[in-house]
Design a protein around this nucleic acid. Structure first.
Lengths: 127, 127
DNA sequence: CCGCATCCTGTCGGATACTG
DNA sequence: CAGTATCCGACAGGATGCGG
């Protein structure tokens, strides 16, 4: 097995809660984007992430800000400009996220193959 | 930044698709459980994961099986016994997942602090 | 430009009951 | 015990419009 982490049962609940928050479709992508480019504007972030609605992006950013992973800076200019960057804590998480991302990149084909096999299996019993 | 992974833009879509599937509340916990204990039965898995409904557990396991990350073995006994284990591919993913898990364990307090600060900030402007 | 509030819909996901 | 099917509530999340 890869690792032992039964280290502190008392933290379990909290760990899960945080893990669930982070392991969310948008959160990972946003962290990734922030990890690639720093001091990034809202609109730019939105296009970087892909097809996230501004509602979800805002929400995700607020959560990350609340968890101390992202800093939000408002420039009192007109038109207003707001940019975001990872905190040191956020950057350290970025590494872990990258680990997942890299795993996926490395194994896309393997997964695709597995899917084809699996899907084929269901369709062709004796046809 | 932690890593460069613009390596293959053509795979981007697929990478995201897979990432979204994996980066799901239950999936991570299930992989984790399977990583800790192998050849584990359905019911045991369910209690290990926590409070997952059997519907979600089944669904999650099917997806993992489809993606070639988990092997499902049915023992033709009565009462029926089914157990699950990670494939080698699944185990390699387990490592990445552990990375996230360990990050969380390490930084629970930091996140909790950040939250308290953030939440306090909203409540107490001058009270 | 940023992002909040509202409305509305699809999907997630739990509880329950039934089959092998 | 393991898994499927059904029903149904909750909420994620998109579209739109307003406010700073």
């Amino acid at each position: 097995m890869a690792c032992d982490l039964d280290c502190d049962p008392s933290k379990e609940a909290m760990v899960r809660e945080i893990l669930e928050r982070i392991a969310d479709k948008w959160t990972l992508l946003v962290i990734e984007a922030l990890d690639r480019e720093t001091d990034i504007r809202f609109s730019r972030l939105q296009e970087r992430v892909g097809n996230i609605s501004q509602k979800m992006l805002t929400k995700t950013l607020r959560q990350l800000e609340r968890d101390g992973l992202v800093t939000r800076r408002v420039h009192p200019t007109v038109p207003p400009r707001v940019d975001y960057r990872l905190t040191p804590l956020g950057e350290s998480l970025g590494e872990a996220v990258c680990g997942m991302w890299m795993w996926v990149e490395k194994h896309v084909e393997a997964v695709e193959d597995a899917r084809r096999t699996f899907d084929g299996r269901s369709e062709r019993p004796a046809a």
